[in-house]
Design a protein around this nucleic acid. Sequence first.
DNA 1: GCAAAAAGCGGAGGCTGACTCCGTTTAGCG
DNA 2: CGCTAAACGGAGTCAGCCTCCGCTTTTTGC
Lengths: 198, 198
Amino acid sequence: MRADALRNRERLVEVAQSAFATNGIETSLEEIARQAGVGIGTLYRRFPRREDLIAAVLAERYLKLTECALTLAEHRKDADAALTEWLTLLVEHMAIYRGLSLAVKEAIHDQSTALGRTCKEMMDAGTALLERGQSLGVFRTDVNFYDVMSLCSGIVTAVERRAEKLADSDIPPVDPYLLLDVVLKGLRSGVLGGGAGG
Amino acid sequence: MRADALRNRERLVEVAQSAFATNGIETSLEEIARQAGVGIGTLYRRFPRREDLIAAVLAERYLKLTECALTLAEHRKDADAALTEWLTLLVEHMAIYRGLSLAVKEAIHDQSTALGRTCKEMMDAGTALLERGQSLGVFRTDVNFYDVMSLCSGIVTAVERRAEKLADSDIPPVDPYLLLDVVLKGLRSGVLGGGAGG
DNA sequence: GCAAAAAGCGGAGGCTGACTCCGTTTAGCG
DNA sequence: CGCTAAACGGAGTCAGCCTCCGCTTTTTGC
């Protein structure tokens, strides 16, 4: 890759990161190009899809999440605590940019983008955490990791949507940790709630 | 309201309904106006916001959901079964148009649109179901109805996103009833899962 | 019936943002 | 230094949102 191209790429990722933080991942790409001092064509050549840019911005973060899952799977004796700890990190991750939780929910079903592929690695690591707990009888076995991710993503989306409207209301804020606790409780094996289903 | 205006209004709602069913609630409004044989200005005069049109399309359906919750609260002895039954209907409702689950998640925090207001009524009825269960010790009391709605909306969004990509994969489809079962299990009181939190 | 007033209509036009295409520029090699 | 592949950039096209206002239709009062 040519030196100038590399420079532009880095600059774009840098600008995108701060733009996402301010305006969410739906920020105008033209605005990002402008702030980075490059033409819109340059942005598109390097990042043909919005998700490619998002993936580039998140790369490091995903690496950490993946590593963390591997470490927890290895060292944490308690499978329940391990998944709890990791899902907490996951939820916090998805909350860093407005709109990210939805993009991730999209990406976990689609490995054709860079974001989808990075998610895959992270999910494989997370899956191991879930499956260890399942094989130990800690978690119910009819649920897969996509299900868990979907629920977590839903939690974050709810928090975002609520945050946008904090002005007008008697409605209390949404607590992601509480909702995560509900989900985790629902995932655990046990006598309660075997029936239900529709 | 003038007779011609009423006619146009009805025609718009009718067309919108089928357009939403085909393309989701993000369908182009200009397309809807065109199909209804009215100008875009007419659509906007009657439905200043997209959500106003959505609310008009859903009006009957919401009425039914509200009534159903009231009936369940009155007649169903079993608070757990009542909420289970109703949330199942709610989830099925949110799945009728692609994108609706997100719009609802937005609307529950914002009574400034027609959709938000209709949701409010439905939610008041649903809240009664939850609170009855809570006062009977069936459900945990640290969760409110917004939380429950948010989780249900997240379930539906996951199903939608998955459905869009059914082509490419070894990934199994998402089962909304299974996820709802997880959430309901998490909502129940009991020894399991009291800790966790972050 | 008719005319005036009120209500409603419609689409041109402005705007924003995605995305493409291609003539121009530049890094980097020999 | 000159050549070439790589990269650049932004004009241009397209789609959709939404507003504005001159024109048309319905309704009302007589």
